[in-house]
Amino acid sequence: MPSLTSLANPTRFLALSGAILPWAAAAAALLFAIGLVMALVTSPPDYQQGDSVRIMYVHVPSVTLAMGCYTAMAISALGTLVWRHPLADVSAKAAAPLGAAFTFLGLVTGAIWGKPMWGTWWVWDARLTSFLVLLIMYLGLMALWRAFDDPARAGRIAAVLILVGFINIPIIKFSVDWWNTLHQPASILRLGGPSIHSSMLWPLFVMMAAFAALFVWAWLAAMRAEIYRRRVRTAELVAAHPTALEPRTA
């Protein structure tokens, strides 16, 4: 098998993702147009929180995607380590900055929402704290990828860390909850919950779908960029060692 494994089936992926990309972009634009109107105009203000409740329509989808993105990375990591699928580590690497961005967005919107609610930008609330730890983990993973020259080796090592983190995140969440209840008796107003009214639920659903479409679009685009980046690298290697791609016998 003379063809390099790193080039084996990305070609088909590039064709497929190229076809999906414009549809994902269009879906995201449409859903955002509808969702933002619903969230900012047609949905009612909260009887307690007033208009500041509207930040929930950005906050909740960000937070959901921040966690969903890590799950996607964990599945990709399994793909790298167990099935050695060449696209799996591209997928994990492309998802990491997106996960970090959504986590950051979740933290910032949480802080902005907290200012009028709690009178302070930041409280060491269990959720905020867990997400801060999650953000550090995303950033650490990105730093780990950057530290290696060889993308294949970086992918395998990062996959191990992703899985370690995946086991650890529930433990961290549990410990932070424990720590929080110990130090701060639950007095904080919580967002969401099952009692949310349908006039707020529908805008939230639409915004969730809009964020999901945006995520799919950005993820595919980042994966394509990573594949092209690796092709450039391979082309450079071939330029330096012209015979490297041809099978040869001793």
Binding site: G140, L144, A147, V160, N168, I172, V176, W178
Partner: peptide, 25 residues
């Protein structure tokens, strides 16, 4: 994870600290 990296020491701290949060708590 960072064995063989020229400046692994700093990276270890970033990678390990979030994982040790439960132990500290």
């Amino acid at each position: 994870l960072t064995a063989g990296l020229p400046r692994g020491g700093l990276l270890i701290a970033i990678l390990v600290l979030p994982l040790t949060v439960p132990v500290l708590i």
